[in-house]
Design a protein around this nucleic acid. Structure first.
Lengths: 339, 339
DNA sequence: ACCGTTTCTGTGAACGTGCACACAACTCTT
DNA sequence: AAGAGTTGTGTGCACGTTCACAGAAACGGT
């Protein structure tokens, strides 16, 4: 056994054909699982593939098939929040796993500045990818518009208004309503909400669900709106609410991170949770089990959302028409200690 | 302006050549920035590219160049921790940005089970990528061994012992020592450590640094070892330490997440921080500013680590030999309130 | 014995690019 | 005016695969 310093040329389809005594065409057919390959040819090819150590060349295959075997995963979110939001990471993970299983590459694009928008537009337009999965798109999002214009296969996680494309999501409104109802059922009278990200469908839907559940109890002055689903926004929101309505006894925070921020403010203000104030969150992220008390929240199936989006996208890439009615996944309320 | 239902064939190099009145070769030279293209040809080609809407075909280019223009980003970490660890996300982000700027695709591979190891091995062997960046490798890691065997360009983030490859990292030992020294300087007498991830270089180095700083004060019974850098491991570790050594007055937690878990146990046990017990962490992740009190910790430049690894990898792919002495980035101690 | 059908196989032509090479035109030296 | 360099240009081939097509072999029915 000698080891040459020079890297050996990788084996090609041709090498397999020669080693197995059949032609390129037959090997190709076998590799692609087509009909009309005899049993004898089959075993000879299998053996030859192992012998010569053959691995298909993706570039050559993509060239002739006019496919790239890659999919863009587009996150429209400030860098800082991307790091902080375990939900996005979960979606990413689910997508990546599903795509890997189908031998697709996931290419992660993060859109933060306007400059990034241009870069992504160029990227998508360049035919580097066969499709795109878009996470946390805003309404009237430039990225969404680009995708619509390019008519590239695409699936959205969430359901931004004004975008006519396939999507996978949860029923934010119904989930928000059911978790708020619980707050009401436990006897709270002055229930407030820290609404967040009202530039996105998830944000407005959660607020709408809150309103649905409260009915005549709803009071506009008990809603404080903050820009992002983050811890520090939760801090800000809770401070504002306490200043305005010291008597509140229930809070629905638009995310667990927001709830965690709110909780720290409540503690500092000397309120006990759930004694003085009942608090519920949204996401069932790792935040929820790290606070004291642990958060009652809505479980969001992040990995399944990602996997579902990937599956739908692969369908579209395979030639199926984009289904314009979205897929809605279940998101049960998780009862813990904070309400 | 008519819109045809049928997708138009994308423009090729040939189309540009015809439109600009020169040959394929000249267009190719201009595109690749080679010499010997006249000024008149240059402007004609530029114009033609815009006119026909030309975009280079990556597959064809990769085929002839024998490059894939893609890089694997390999994370060896349980899924759950990947979601939880903001450090990894930061490295990923830094890598992705640096690679995008160089027109490389980042392909994210997550290794959790043994099955994943096989999949990654096959993937790397398939020539789908030009190189790999490996995060949080263990000692005697099967993935590391595969990479060594394939002699594929690779850079490690961190410096696993027994792996002879390029790496970018921080001096965990020195940083751990300096943060521990501070604990000692503030008069703590019985200083404990919750060590974590001792199957990795970062874990053992932080423990070694702790030992360095304490000198004759070091006491083996004050070290509790837990498997991972996670919040729940911090909870477990702190409980064990308190049970064994109720009189401890200082704790160095191997990560901020571990410190956060430890802090909640300390609070539950009625100890004040930093009054009764001084506590320091490691990473300067978002955990550090979310606890009360905020954590004194070591700042880890996650994004720069990722960017540095990407830069070194691109060097190697460009033909430079792998530099076997690693790059060490600065990681200053950040003084906050917990010690 | 003939023909049609089914099963299997090989061949040549793409796919769109980079690269080596040949060669033309021009400048400078001798 | 001839030769040697420099600058610019076009052409053919290779990269490794898929696909369409032609045709061989086997089979069954008349």
């Amino acid at each position: 056994m000698t080891s040459s310093a020079e890297p050996v040329r990788p084996a090609t389809l041709h090498d397999v054909a020669r080693a197995s005594g059949v032609s390129r065409g037959t090997v190709s057919r076998h590799l692609n699982g087509e009909r009309y390959v005899s049993e004898t040819a089959r075993v000879a090819i299998e053996q030859a593939i192992v012998d010569v150590g053959y691995v298909p060349n993706t570039a050559a295959r993509n060239l002739v098939r006019r496919r790239t075997q890659a999919v863009a995963f587009i996150v429209h979110e400030p860098h800082a929040l991307f790091l902080e939001d375990p939900n996005i990471a979960g979606i990413l993970l689910g997508t990546n796993t599903a795509l890997s299983d189908a031998d697709y590459q996931m290419v992660c694009l993060i859109v933060d500045s306007d400059r990034d928008t241009q870069r992504v537009a160029r990227y998508l337009n360049s035919g580097f990818v066969d499709g795109a999965i878009v996470v946390s798109a805003r309404e009237n999002d430039p990225v969404s518009r680009i995708i619509e214009k390019l008519r590239i296969p695409a699936v959205f996680v969430g359901h931004p208004r004004g975008v006519d494309a396939a999507w996978v999501g949860i029923d934010n409104r119904a989930a928000a309503a059911s978790v708020t109802t619980r707050l009401r059922d436990t006897g709270r009278q002055r229930i407030a909400m820290i609404a967040a990200a009202l530039d996105r469908d998830s944000g407005t839907d959660r607020l709408a669900g809150f309103r649905d559940a409260l009915g005549e109890l709803f009071d506009e002055r008990l809603v404080e709106s903050v820009p992002l689903y983050s811890y520090s926004d939760g801090v800000d929101g809770m401070r504002a609410l306490l200043a305005r309505e010291p008597l509140l006894d229930g809070v629905f925070a638009a995310s667990d991170a927001v709830a965690a921020g709110a909780l720290s403010v409540l503690h500092s203000a000397g309120r006990t949770v759930p004694g003085d104030v009942g608090l519920v969150g949204f996401d069932d992220s790792s935040w929820a089990t790290r606070t004291t008390p642990q958060l009652t929240t809505v479980h969001q199936p992040a990995a399944q959302l990602g996997a579902g989006a990937a599956a739908e996208l692969l369908h579209q890439i395979g030639g199926a028409p984009a289904s314009s009615d979205g897929v809605i996944l279940e998101c049960p309320v998780v009862w813990r200690d904070s309400a």
